[in-house]
Every structure is written in C-alpha cells, then in structure tokens.
Amino acid sequence: MIKRKSEPYLYLIPALTIVILFVYYPFVKTIISSFFKVDIYGNLKEFVAFNNYLKLFSNQNFYRAFSQTLLHTLMYVPISIFIGLGLAFVSNQKSHFSRVYETLFTLSMAISVSIACQIFRMIYNPSYGLLAKTFGINIAWLTNKQYALFAVTFILIWIQIGFNYIYLSASLKNIPEDIIESANIDGAGFFRKLFHIYIPMISSSLFYLIVTSIITGLTMITPVLILTEGGPQRSTQTMIYNMYVYAYNNSNYAMAYTYGVVVFFLVAIIVAINFSFERKSVFYR
C-alpha cells in the first residue's frame, strides 16, 4: 500500500466531481424537499417536518411494495449468480464447450432490458406466445397475480446470467493452476475443491456480483413499467415503481421524494451489512 497524502485524492477528483454535481447535490435537495409540501410545479410550500414520512409508513401499499421488492431480490440475486456460476464451471472444463454456447449464454448482455421485455411479452402471451403455442403451457404469466412477479423476475435473471457467467468464468480462469493441481494430487473431490479453492479464490468477484445485484434488485422498475404497470392487483408494484407513479403520474412530488430517500437508506443499510462481511469472508490475493 502506498502512503502519500494528496495523490490518491487526485485520482478520485474526476469521479467525485461528477457524483457530487449530478447525484448528491440534487439528492440533498431531494432530502430537504421531503420535509415540505411540494406543489405540482415543484415549488416547496410549507414545512411539514416528518409528515411525509409518517404518511408513507402508514400506507399499506408501501409495505406491500417493500415485501415484493424484497421477494424479487431474494429470487433474483441467488438464482442469477448460481446459474452464472454453474455455466462458468461447465465452460471451465474447456473440452466440450464450444464458442457457440458461450455466445448464446452471453448474448443477453447485448440486449437492453426494454427490448428483452418486448421479446418476453411475446413469449409470455397466453394466446400466441411461445410458451403457449410451442409447449402448450396455458398460463397468463403477466396477468395472473400469482405468477406476474415471478415472470418479471425471470426476465431480469435471464438478462443478468450472461454477465454473471462471463465475469465468473474470467475469475475462474484466473485461479493459478498449481493450486488446483496440488488439490488434485491430494485427491480432493469436486465439492471440497469448490468450497476450499474455487469459492475463496473467486470470492472478490462473487462479492461484487452479490452487492451490485442486490442494488439492482432493490431498485427494480423497468419491466414493471413496460409490462405490468404494477398489476395485476398491485402484485408487481416495487418501491421504485410506486415512487415513479407518485412523481410522474400523480405529480405528488413530496411523496416521491420521501419514497426516494427511504429507498436510498434501505438499500444503503442492506449493502452496508454486506460490506461488514467483506473483511471476514472475501479473499484478496
């Protein structure tokens, strides 16, 4: 580690300048506004202290959106990482894994969430969709409140798998061969190698994926906006979606700002918990 007083700050200046100007400066304004009444033109009216927060926390829909967002994240993070890791292991056994498969697995990286949603809208359609016509599965994926959230989560998992796969297989290939060889000589089985070599050696990559996926999971909105608009029967409303509705559909800026602040702190707490484990469980060479 280098110890020099001013040099590291120089490297941080570009990033910090932009982040302060375009994220924190407006966000501080948002926090301040959340303590006021705000009219439809965005002007602050009267100071209401924590009134907006009280309103938010006494709103049934907030808890509903919170638990649905959490459920989405609990499915999205582990499944997308697990599948990505599985594929990375398979492709690490170089022999029978062609470039064609590699490209197929990772192609989702090239597709934006909104295009993916349009594709899945067709796949899910119960009258002419791929699932209904080809496999005869006649389920109204996006209009049945039992399935809609899973259907939305699935799209995001599908998109994320490509990146997780390529990123984790990069990490796997970076593991020094001699370590694995010596384990092989010791006669270690796959699971022993998995938990004692592979996982620790790629823990920094896994940590990155877990943290960033948690953030994207908890701030999910795009497919809900495009495909379900929170429905049916509010079953796909997420926190950010509700915030969006307050801001743009209902011009209720005070509530939107309050929502934004609450989401920020909820995510920050969850991420901070993750980081508290970093030193203990993440291994950096």
Binding site: G231, Q233, R234, V245, N249, N250, S251
Partner: peptide, 12 residues
C-alpha cells in the same frame, strides 16, 4: 390528478 391510479383501481 390521480387519473392513472384510478384507472388501475377500476381495472383491478
């Protein structure tokens, strides 16, 4: 002002 919300409420 909450036209979209009402739309969804009636739809559901």
């Amino acid at each position: 002002g909450v036209g979209t919300t009402i739309l969804v409420i009636l739809k559901d």
